[in-house]
Nucleic acid binder design. Structure first.
Length: 451
RNA sequence: CGGAGCGUGGCGCAGCCUGGUAGCGCACCUGGUUUGGGACCAGGGGGUCGGAGGUUCGAAUCCUCUCGCUCCGACCA
């Protein structure tokens, strides 16, 4: 992408209403624009990140055996009356009427609708297990939206729903999602720790939150240090091996790990002092096992091997990609701007032309741009005629992993400056050496984080 | 929903108390000189002060109502 042809409206100063760093940087980097309290437009750079996060989540859901659908944002109130939640949900649910004065609502979640889909088609235990998910906008009319897209009223969410014949197989489904979340956050280049969670209004008896550790996180977390050292299963994981999956779940949940809400001082004191880790985190995922809470009132049954009808056991599994984007920034930034993880940045490389109009420099830039693009890199080429300082500031602000700086000074020696955003390391390399370095980096990233 | 605060060119702010029809920095446009870490000079465009009503000869400034936004608290992917 040539910057001159892109739409990247950056701000030198953050608007006053932005309090936390991810919100400030998302506004400054031209990623989002607030349209109303807790409601945002996603501008090209922000949308690009949102899509990348979404895609990683999708790949890992698919790998774990979940099947994607897409349900509407607007739902009929009737479904919610069946589960009893139409009255329970309160003012967080945005209620609307259509022209015929039928009660509708903007979905805050989709348990009812997915249960309706399930009961419409599935009759036999032979069709189980089943896990359906979608990635769709949700609306919860929060009393007080804040922190930009971190707690918006409208937010993007991946929500998966598992259906099983009985409790044990339903727990196995829960474990699969648990493990897929470990892999998802690992691929997103962040440390997300699963914590025992309160089941909340959705109900059920088994629930975990996944928190990305960041100093600016809202929740205080208490966990055993060993949790951080546990290996995340690689892409060759076999989700059909229930025992192995349960083993991973047990490994990750055997140590103490709770947020302040669930914190238990007595249990905490049993953890050896040197192992206690006290940090802050941002909740980016939440999984629930809730059994027949919805299937029973809504009549979602299958015939079992015994020839009798059984209410299906269900769980739901959510990740908020829009919040994840903000959380990545909370977890990775410095005074100059965003530092995206290597694994997931809006572009891989920023190519900076320091002297637009100088034929040699222009030619070198375009050559390198084409080479990189052909090699599969996503490159943002700053071909604007701005000054060096402004270009460097922009590059640091949007935080692409690599900056390739090409100007007449270095080009005289056949060299360009290669800067790594995260470490600040810079070196002068030939074009060829640059390509080799980036190719090696790309290979390494693919091996560590690729699908 | 309880408490606090803010709305003045695109962004950040001053002016308001002590009414006299709007100013600064950045950004933007034109020309020139510049060009490796947010250049300089000159010229220029853009707001009628969130909205409505009122007081007054006169309102960004005072009063009333209203809308929007933010922060603290209770709640949440």
């Amino acid at each position: 992408m040539y910057l001159s042809k892109y739409f990247l409206p950056v701000l030198k100063e953050a608007p006053r209403e932005a309090e936390i760093v991810s919100h400030q940087l998302m506004l400054r980097a031209g990623m989002i624009k607030q349209q109303s309290a807790g409601i945002y437009s996603w501008l090209p750079l922000g949308l690009k990140m949102l899509r990348k996060v979404e895609q990683v989540i999708r790949e890992e859901q698919n790998r774990a055996g979940a099947v994607e659908v897409l349900m509407p944002t607007i739902q009929s109130a009737d479904l919610w009356r069946e589960s009893g939640r139409y009255d329970d949900y309160g003012k967080e649910m945005l209620r609307i009427q259509d022209r015929h004065e039928r009660d509708m609502l903007f979905g805050p979640t989709n348990e009812e609708m997915i249960t309706d889909i399930f009961r419409s088609y599935v009759r036999s235990y032979k069709d189980l297990p089943l896990n359906l998910y979608h990635i769709q906008w949700k609306f919860r009319d929060e009393v007080r939206p804040r922190f930009g897209v971190m707690r918006g009223r409208e937010f993007f969410m991946k929500d998966a729903y598992s259906f099983d014949l009985d409790e044990p197989s339903s727990r196995a489904a829960y474990y699969r999602m648990f493990v897929s979340y470990l892999r998802t956050f690992d691929r997103l280049g962040v440390t997300a720790v699963p914590m025992r969670a309160d089941t909340g209004p959705i109900g059920g008896d088994l629930s975990h939150e996944f928190l990305i550790l960041a100093d600016t996180g809202e929740s205080e977390v208490f966990c055993h240090g060993d949790t951080m050292k546990l290996p995340v299963p690689d892409r060759n994981i076999d989700y059909s091996d229930d025992a192995a999956i349960e083993g991973i779940f047990k490994d990750w949940t055997s140590n103490y790990a709770r947020t302040d809400e669930m914190h238990d001082e007595n249990l905490w004191n049993e953890v050896a002092e040197g192992d206690r880790m006290n940090a802050r985190g941002i909740e980016v995922g939440h999984i629930f096992h809730f059994g027949t809470k919805y299937s029973e009132p809504m009549g979602a049954k299958v015939t079992g091997p015994d020839g009798k009808d059984h209410d299906v056991y269900m769980g739901s599994y959510g990740i908020g990609p829009s919040r994840v984007v903000a959380a990545l920034i909370e977890a990775g930034h410095d005074e100059n701007g965003i530092i995206w993880p290597d694994s997931i940045a809006p572009f891989d490389v920023g190519l900076i032309n320091l002297r637009v109009g100088d034929e040699a420099v222009d030619t070198a830039c375009v050559d390198l741009y084409n080479q990189l693009t052909n090699a599969g890199f996503d490159v943002l080429y700053d071909d604007t005629d701005g000054r060096a300082g402004g270009k460097f500031a922009l590059a640091d602000l949007i935080g692409l992993p690599w900056q390739l700086i090409i100007g007449p000074r270095g080009l005289k020696n056949g060299e360009i400056e290669v800067k790594h955003r995260a470490t600040g390391e810079r070196e002068n390399l030939t074009m060829e050496a640059t390509m080799n370095k980036l190719t090696a980096w790309q290979k390494d990233v693919n091996e560590r984080f690729g699908g």
